[in-house]
Design a protein around this nucleic acid. Structure first.
Lengths: 244, 244
DNA sequence: AACATTGTTCCATCTAACGGAACATGATCG
DNA sequence: CGATCATGTTCCGTTAGATGGAACAATGTT
């Protein structure tokens, strides 16, 4: 974007935006092409994201994703709740040649739209679910078949079955199943999901996949709970200041 | 980290840090666990990094990486210069079963340390090279054999050959070659490199790999130059404000 | 060549960030 | 089990420094 474009979006004076972007450029979070006078997001963000991975679920869940992808040969996703959206934070592709890459790492979806996202939504506190179904319909524009009533039914089905199923509501040739990763008192911290082409999602295979997902999810939930308890040495994290 | 830890590192008052972290938490760049009172980097950073990819070399270079990984079966890296460091911004693994994953996406190395990093360094403006060799030796602590004189020789060799070679200086069982992605006036914008186990890096194979790398790098350089010229419509980028 | 648009710099005003201090909470040790 | 210490949280007066108007420079456009 150009300076003027940024200025228009953020509602601040030209001079101010100029100074702020200058500061961000200095620390590498923004890049500036002097020729074209265009600002871009900078490479420093890669380092930040890499650091974020290290201390989040992502690192702990990686082995699960790898195992699932190897065993199922399909694409496995890890999502977390982020505000009223589901955020894909990791992905692992199996070796089946037809790959279903609906989500990239970093992509967001309204809560409820998609198997992983639905698994997350269904296992949130009831108050949250009600509010989201009521208020968030605007965000679901453009995803047909995700009105409040339809979603409520899907949430109920998910709670009943223990897993979320999406049979081609987003991309018709595809289907996906998702399960929540729950902490000790049943709140969903994350969701594991597997996507594949419709042909590989018959009833028998679904229950097979769900079984594998649930086993990994349970194990993961336990190990996350444990880490939550380890307060003592967590504080001792010495920080190397020149890391950035 | 705990609040007190952060306070110690950033040299600001407790109250101030508390407020700042609160603000960052609200926008999702920091996560706070109320139970353990620990702050972490937040998931919002994933979205930022994903957005950064979209407007940087990464997206344009992805096809090259995929082609190289498929053709060579080894691991292909894309790095850029970021301050006085080389930053790995993308990686693609081939199907050879012994994988050499020295670098993760987001990792940094001092300029000159590693094949990609050396390729970047060698094709920087001469003034920069001199300054870096002179001033940056502290950063190269812990990488043996990368003193200023040794590096200068390696830079010369790289310029002479047109590619950088690293024969196990970092991990002894591994070797890697790297080439610069140059813009129209010869400055390195990025580096493509391939790493493999020593056995797969004989003289014949090296020149084969270098050939492939150079072809991709040249093509990539041309396409990046083109994009640099397209100033006109770049400004027209309408921005969807609610993207975040 | 005149004009329009955008980027950059300067500076006086006034916002809002800072941190001291007081309080709350939970951990640690005698 | 109670006293003490360390840490997290809230409040608020002072003042550092962010803001944006305005003037200027450097482009691109008609």
């Amino acid at each position: 974007m150009r300076l003027a474009d940024v200025t228009a979006v953020v509602d601040l004076g030209k001079a101010t935006v100029h100074r702020l972007l200058g500061a961000l450029t200095e620390v590498g979070f923004v890049e500036f092409d002097d020729g074209s006078k265009l600002y871009r997001l900078g490479y420093g963000l890669f380092s930040l994201a890499a650091a974020a991975q290290q201390f989040s679920i992502v690192e702990q869940a990686r082995p699960s994703l790898v195992r699932l992808a190897a065993a199922t040969e399909d694409t496995v996703y890890l999502s977390v709740r982020e505000g009223d959206q589901a955020l894909c934070v990791d992905r692992c592709t199996g070796k089946f040649p037809i790959r279903t890459l609906t989500l990239d790492v970093g992509d967001r979806r309204p809560l409820g739209v998609g198997a992983g996202s639905l698994a997350l939504l269904a296992f949130q506190p009831e108050g949250d679910i009600d509010r989201i179904l009521r208020d968030d319909h605007a965000a679901r524009q453009g995803f047909s078949g995700f009105d409040a009533d339809g979603l409520r039914a899907m949430v109920r089905a998910t709670l009943r079955d223990g897993y979320a199923f999406n049979g081609g509501r987003i991309v018709s040739a595809m289907a996906a199943v998702g399960v929540p990763v729950k902490d000790h008192d049943g709140r969903a911290l994350a969701a594991l999901s597997i996507a594949a082409i419709r042909e590989r999602m018959g009833p028998a295979r679904i229950s097979e996949l769900v079984g594998m997902l649930q086993q990994e999810a349970e194990e993961l939930g336990r190990s996350l709970d444990q880490r939550g308890q380890t307060r003592t040495e967590a504080g001792q994290n010495k920080v190397t200041e020149e890391q950035f």
